[in-house]
């Protein structure tokens, strides 16, 4: 028999080794997966996407902008562009580079997969929004169109991604741009966020950190060269104009325009009542559908009925049934209090 000390040491080492290899995010396996990306195909597809974005937004595209957006050297960008021309996906003219019909179709395919995947992650998984983009950047180069169609069918053929961007159809149709940027709003004007641009990443993550997402009601308070101040679902947000440009808004149609701060269901005390104004867009997918199925729709009266021992979850009386919701859910339900 091996003596206990030796075997203990062996035992601990084996466990340590396994941890090093499999540790999520930082382990060897995870690192290996990360490094596999950035191949030739990726460069081609990313530049097509970039060119398409320029076209969609009516900007000119150059080798430099490609190099910038893909973070590669100008030399490499030139090589990629040459290859694209050779494949008949791009032509160069006096304004720089532009897509051929084939190139556009290819770009749309990649965009379709990207946006579908983001939508899938947002609705059908618990992966946080800061990780969607990154994951979609990988998947878009791996998935085939047929797989994407299957995925789309499973999640109800969505037409918008979670940032509010339209998803191209399988045939490559895409509607034109809608709405205007937040910084062009008038003081006191009401509008709804319909889109938040997810590139560049540092701006997007700042906007996410501010708690902004498509579907929010905004009202402009102040607009100067230095800063733009507005209410988003009743909470004050201050952004630099450059950042505000990345937010697209559209006029509010049928919904009620709500002045002042939004009250949350979680703020009610036992015995208090409120009337639902809406569910925050932050609550998505199954969770959102479930809430609506349970009767949490605008106009529904909700009363706090019972607090559990730790104060979370809390049971609410909703349309005659007693339904327990966790605090994190109640925070996503906006209400107006009722006397």
């Amino acid at each position: 028999m091996i003596d206990p000390l030796t075997s203990l040491i062996i035992g601990f080492s084996v466990i340590l080794l396994l941890v090093i290899i499999f540790y999520p995010g930082k382990g060897l396996v995870a690192r290996f997966k990360k490094n596999k990306a950035n191949t030739y195909r990726v460069l081609i597809e990313d530049s097509l996407k970039h060119l398409y974005n320029c076209e969609y937004n009516g900007i000119n595209c150059t080798l430099n902008s490609i190099a910038g957006s893909l973070s590669i050297s100008a030399d490499e960008a030139a090589k990629v562009a040459a290859k694209l021309e050779e494949l008949g996906l791009v032509v160069s003219n006096e304004n720089g580079l532009s897509l051929t019909p084939d190139g556009r179709a290819y770009a749309l395919k990649v965009i379709r997969i990207h946006r579908l995947w983001e939508k899938y992650l947002a609705d059908e998984t618990s992966i946080g929004e800061e990780d969607w983009h990154h994951s979609a950047e990988e998947i878009e180069h791996q998935m085939t169109l047929a797989e994407a169609d299957k995925l789309a069918a499973q999640i109800g053929n969505p037409v918008f991604d979670p940032h509010g961007d339209p998803i191209p159809t399988a045939k490559g149709d895409l509607p034109g741009k809608k709405g205007k940027s937040l910084d062009s709003m008038k003081i006191g004007e009401f509008a709804k966020i319909i889109h938040i641009e997810d590139e560049p990443h540092y701006i997007y993550s700042q906007l996410v950190a501010e708690g902004l997402y498509p579907g929010m009601q905004v009202q402009l308070i102040e607009s100067t060269k230095e800063r733009i101040k507005f209410l988003a679902n009743g909470e004050e947000v201050v952004l630099a104009p450059l950042f505000a440009k990345n937010i697209t808004v559209a006029p509010i149609k049928d919904e009620r325009k709500i002045e002042g701060t939004f009250k949350k269901l979680s703020s009610l005390k036992p015995g208090e009542k409120g009337k639902v104004l809406g569910i925050s867009r932050r609550c998505r997918g199954q969770q959102r559908r479930r809430l609506m199925d349970l009767g949490v729709v605008p106009g529904t009266e909700i009363e706090v009925e019972l607090e559990s021992i730790g104060g979370d979850p809390i049971a609410y009386r909703i349309k005659g049934a007693t339904i327990a919701l966790r605090k994190s859910q109640a925070e996503n339900i906006y209400i107006e209090s009722e006397e």
């Binding site: 999520p24 609705d123 618990s126 199954q286 969770q287 049934a321 339904i323 919701l325």
Partner: peptide
């Protein structure tokens, strides 16, 4: 926190009469 981190999660608990 690991393997099932990504799986969808939706809480609801009805307290029947």
């Amino acid at each position: 926190k690991t393997v099932l981190k990504g799986e969808a999660s939706a809480f609801s608990l009805e307290l029947p009469p």
